[in-house]
Design a protein around this nucleic acid. Structure first.
Lengths: 116, 116
DNA sequence: CGGAATCCTCTACGATACTG
DNA sequence: CAGTATCGTAGAGGATTCCG
């Protein structure tokens, strides 16, 4: 699961259950994760392509964000045994079910951002 | 807005727009914010009540999380000039429009958590 | 009762160098 | 091309003390 020490991860004493909302929140709680999911929702991408789509990200960080998303079953990593290496990232079926959630969060955000 | 240095806050060079999804994400990106919003969606609460509902949180942290939610127009703070002091927290109208989003995140989270 | 003010810790993010 | 390994830093969270 997510590596953030927010509510969902370590339920405070007295609360046995992990809040599903916070669980969801934590999945996307990474500096680049939402944008990565968004790009992958459009099409499969290679490592280098993603790096170019995310100006400013370093290879180390991109790798970590992708590994975490993979661990969370949101992203699939396909390695082609070629030289030079080729690795393609795509959404898993579960990752795809998350797109509508992203959409709704985006809709709400758009409205809320305007009333500032 | 949120105080997190995720994607939404400082758009990387080359991207003018702030992603609305990330904007939404950031609003709830605090260790206790989602649970606070959830409790306030049920009913108005006093400071001390909230502290009791969130076992393990300190006054300082609770104050900060509430102040940030207030700044983000999610939570309303009503001060009653009495002795001893009384302060009530509730959702703003905008905060209330966020409940359906929470619900959807929760639904998705529930399903996703099971398939582990 | 509902904070404000300090100090501290932990870790997500990032920069850099190196590699099969 | 797609990483790994190492090191450094900022800032979110927390513990504690004091206050009107």
């Amino acid at each position: 699961m997510a590596r953030y020490k927010f509510q969902g991860e370590t339920p405070p004493e007295g609360q046995e259950e992990v809040c599903p909302v916070t669980y969801t929140q934590n999945l996307t709680a990474g500096r680049w994760k939402i944008i990565i999911l968004w790009h992958l929702s459009k099409q499969t991408r290679r490592f280098n392509e993603l790096q170019r789509l995310l100006p400013g990200i370093s290879k180390g960080i991109l790798t970590r964000q992708l590994r975490e998303l993979e661990e969370d079953k949101m992203v699939h990593r396909e390695v082609y045994k070629e030289v030079p290496p080729k690795v393609e990232y795509s959404l898993t079926p579960e990752g795809k079910t998350f797109i509508p959630v992203l959409d709704i969060m985006g809709e709400w955000g758009k409205k809320h951002m305007q009333r500032k």
